[in-house]
């Protein structure tokens, strides 16, 4: 049972405050970037920032950075499964008209 016994690291307030600052900064950034026309890139930038913010919350506010391998697997697995669902379903929608239209992407 001792294979992945966690030590329950106590995260310091300074760490929390730093993360808070970063999160607020990224929020402002994503807001202003949205008003700039980046074409297709807009989506990737917005999602990139959201993923970064989410990761910061998971890793530090939720202590996964300091946690056992098991919890890393649970977190990665859950998001991975969501990805699996998105990719395989989207795969259907993207390729649905390939045989009619002579276009490769969208």
């Amino acid at each position: 049972m001792s294979d992945d016994h966690s030590k329950h690291h106590i995260v310091q307030p300074t760490t929390y405050a730093t993360i808070l600052g970063a999160l607020l900064l990224f929020t402002v950034l994503t807001y202003y970037v949205a008003f700039i026309d980046l074409g297709v890139l807009s989506n990737f930038v917005a999602m990139g920032i959201a993923v970064t913010k989410g990761s910061l919350v998971v890793l530090f506010f939720m202590h996964i950075f300091y946690s056992t391998r098991l919890l890393w697997v649970v977190v990665a697995g859950s998001f991975g499964w969501l990805g699996l669902m998105l990719v395989l379903t989207l795969g259907d929608y993207i390729t649905r008209h390939w045989d009619i239209q002579h276009r490769i992407f969208f």
Binding site: G91, D92, Y93, I94, T95, R96, W98, D99
Partner: peptide, 10 residues
Amino acid sequence: GQSVYSALIF
């Protein structure tokens, strides 16, 4: 009605 390519993969 899913795409034939998807059907192939599945």
